[in-house]
């Protein structure tokens, strides 16, 4: 029986994420205990909030080493929103903070590119997959997903970019390195298109 672990580190909309994954047919369990990774086939790192607080909470509960280990065991991991940002080497929200270091890069504040540009970036915006990525299987180029964030992930290498979105110029809206995935948007709140992303992840 395939099991999807949702990491509970006190940050975020766990209820929304759980319901969406269940709706997509996943056998979900929410856990605050890193040793539960041993029974998981898929791991979801959700999160809303600030980078520094997120890492403090992950460190306190012992998730950092457990998540790093899980990726060497090739268990598919999906970071959502702050969860994606925490995959970076470092972030700058709430002071410079070391991240999980699972995808090389850093997380910085979005810089408005015009007087009309408002931060946070809130609402539905188009996602452009960069070449064929399994996360975007059966999803049309330019489909809108729901975003709500003020910071963005700047990967060290373009090879890890799975999709981009036009705002403040262009920012990286999805990442993939090996079995590690991240979406800056909220698939759990992106209606049918979001469910397709979740199903694609569960199919890995």
């Amino acid at each position: 029986m395939s099991k999807t672990l949702i990491v509970d580190y006190g940050m975020g909309n766990l209820g929304s994420v759980r319901r969406a994954f269940e709706e997509c047919g996943a056998d979900v369990f929410i856990s605050g205990n890193p040793s539960d990774i041993s029974v998981a086939d898929h791991i979801v790192l959700p999160g809303v909030g600030a980078f520094a607080d997120g890492m403090t909470a992950l460190n306190a509960a012992g998730w950092v080493d457990a998540l790093r280990r899980s990726t060497t065991e090739m268990i598919p991991l999906l970071g959502i929103c702050l969860g994606m940002q925490l995959l970076a080497d470092r972030g700058f929200e709430g002071g410079e903070t070391e991240g999980l270091g699972l995808i090389p890069g850093e997380v910085r504040r979005l810089e408005p590119d015009s007087a009309e540009t408002r931060i946070p970036h809130v609402g539905w915006n188009e996602v452009h997959p960069r070449c064929a990525n399994p996360l975007f299987s059966a999803i049309a180029e330019g489909t809108d997903f729901y975003f709500v964030h003020s910071y963005h992930f700047i990967p060290l290498t373009a090879d890890d970019i799975a999709a981009t979105t036009p705002y403040c110029g262009t920012f990286v809206s999805a990442l993939n390195r090996g079995t590690v995935f991240g979406t800056q948007f909220h698939p759990e709140k992106s209606s049918r298109a979001g469910f397709q992303v979740i199903r694609n992840f569960l199919a890995l």
């Binding site: 809303v48 909030g49 600030a50 607080d53 702050l82 709430g94 946070p120 003020s150």
Partner: peptide, 8 residues
């Protein structure tokens, strides 16, 4: 904002 992020 500090605890849950400005976005929410």
């Amino acid at each position: 904002a500090e605890r849950f992020g400005s976005q929410c």
